[in-house]
Each structure stands twice: as C-alpha cells, then as structure tokens.
C-alpha cells in the first residue's frame, strides 16, 4: 500500500481555499489537495505525479479563481457598483444609446506566452438606420463599403480591422474608417451625375435604365397609364430575384412575367 501524503485529501483542508490560495501563484504540490499528474511519460509508466512534475510548475494555473473565490470577490466589490440603468432594459434601447458594437476576442491558453496574434482583430458593427443619412448618402456609403461589408437584409455595416499589430491601434483605425465613410458619403462629387448610378444594388432609377431609353424609341405619349404600368412591371421583374431562387420559376415569378407581358402588349398596342 502506498503511503499517501495527507494533502491528497480535500477534507483535510482547514478553512476556505481562497484563504490558502488568495493570489495567482506558482503551483505548490504541498498546498494543492488534488492528485494531479502532468508531463511526458516513459514507456509503460504513468506520467509524473505532482511532487516530481516540472511541467506543472511551468503552466499558468487559475487556482485563485475558483467559483467561491469569484463570488466572494464580487460580493466585496458590490458596494462600489451602481444599479444597471432602467432605460436600457431592452436590446433596442441599448442599440439606440450605443449604436456601435465592438467585438474582440481575448485568448487564454496554457502556453509559453500569454499573447495571441488573433486577439488584435477588431470588428465593429453599426446599423445604418442609426446614422443620419439621406438617400444619396446612404447609397454612396453602401457602395463604398461594398457588398461584403453591408448586409442589405438587416441593414448592418460591419468593419473588420486586422492590419495593425495591437488591438488598440485596430480599434482606433476602425473608428477612423467609420468616420471617414460617413463624411465621405455626404459629399457629392461632380462625377456623380445620374448617368453613373445603376440599379444593380436594388435602387432602381427609371430615368437612367436601359428600358427607359428603349421605350423612348417607340413613339408614345408619355402621360398614358400604360407607361406607368409598364414601369411598375419592369421594376417588379428586376427587383424580385433572390440568389437562392435563381433559375426556378415559382408562382410569384411566373406572375411577374405574365404581368410584364400584359403591360408590354398594352404598351405596344397589339
């Protein structure tokens, strides 16, 4: 029978564990009442126990952060805290007060270095409805940001920065980008006349479309309701397709095509 050191047994503990181990400290086998083993094994052997393991000394431990210790810590800190504001009860309230959301990741690992290069990445998101934008500024901002940064379905602009070495620098750069995007989108350059815009991003401007130019070739009176109806059906056709439904003729799309056909027949007076 192996003679065991009494510190194997947890019930030999006298008093609170957080009193014995209050602060981050190197591993001490005589204080920790756990049968730990760590380290490289020889053939047909178990890994070294805590008295002989050097590996246990190398790694960082969190023995000072046991749940009771954290609770105690929080209880001690509570008298310095203020209550959570009542105005920020729902998610919408939070978003209204703090529209920019920052997302970073901290990595904790048992390694040689506490630093992880992936921790420098900063992602900032904002819903565009929280910004003051007119139609032109909004269109320009979404086009400057590009399709991969702006999600049309939930109106969220995402900026991900990882070009600087430190998280702080990346945060600042993301802020700078947001500011620059906002103020740049409010400017109207001389080359931004109407001919250059397109409806490819869902903003359909009838006077600039090729359909309008084609209809001009027909000799028609412009005030007639047929032109208006035709315009509506073209708009419906162009704005409808969703990427996953490409190539499939659903009932709604069939109806859009037949609407288009009716309007064209009326337009051409056939």
């Amino acid at each position: 029978r192996i003679a065991r050191h009494p510190s194997f047994l947890a019930d030999t503990l006298e008093g609170e564990w957080s009193d014995i181990w209050p602060l981050p400290n190197q591993f001490n086998p005589y204080l920790v009442p756990l049968p730990l083993r760590m380290g490289h094994t020889q053939k047909f052997c178990v890994s070294p126990d805590k008295y002989t393991s050097v590996e246990l000394l190398k790694v960082q431990n969190f023995l000072h952060l046991t749940p009771p210790a954290i609770k105690k810590h929080c209880a001690a800190l509570k008298k310095f805290c203020t209550p959570f504001p009542k105005e920020l009860e729902t998610q919408q309230d939070c978003e209204r007060e703090f529209p920019v959301e920052t997302h970073t990741v901290d990595y904790v690992a048992a390694g040689k270095t506490p630093r992880n290069p992936a921790a420098r990445v900063v992602t900032k998101t904002i819903r565009l409805s929280n910004l003051v934008l007119d139609h032109h500024a909004r269109l320009k901002l979404t086009q400057l940001a590009g399709k991969e940064r702006y999600n049309r379905s939930n109106d969220i602009l995402t900026i991900k920065v990882d070009r600087c070495p430190v998280k702080k620098q990346n945060k600042d750069f993301a802020d700078y980008l947001l500011t620059a995007l906002y103020f740049e989108s409010w400017k109207t350059e001389p080359w931004e006349s109407k001919e250059h815009t397109s409806h490819s991003d869902g903003y359909y401007w009838w006077e600039d479309s090729a359909s309008y130019q084609n209809v001009k070739n027909l000799s028609l009176s412009w005030d007639s309701p047929t032109v208006e109806k035709y315009r509506e059906s073209v708009r419906e056709l162009k704005l409808e397709p969703e990427p996953e439904k490409l190539g499939i003729l659903t009932e709604e799309r069939k109806e859009a095509v037949s609407n288009y056909k009716d309007s064209v027949i009326k337009l051409l007076n056939l």
């Binding site: 084609n214 209809v215 162009k238 397709p241 490409l246 190539g247 003729l249 799309r253 095509v257 051409l268």
Partner: peptide, 16 residues
Amino acid sequence: HPYDILGQEGFDILDP
C-alpha cells in the same frame, strides 16, 4: 426562368 439565363445585359437590350 427567362431572365436568369438572359442576364441583366440581355434584358436591358431586349426590353420591352
């Protein structure tokens, strides 16, 4: 569906 095959450019040329 006709306009998925024809594409944006084709539709613009052929419309109406």
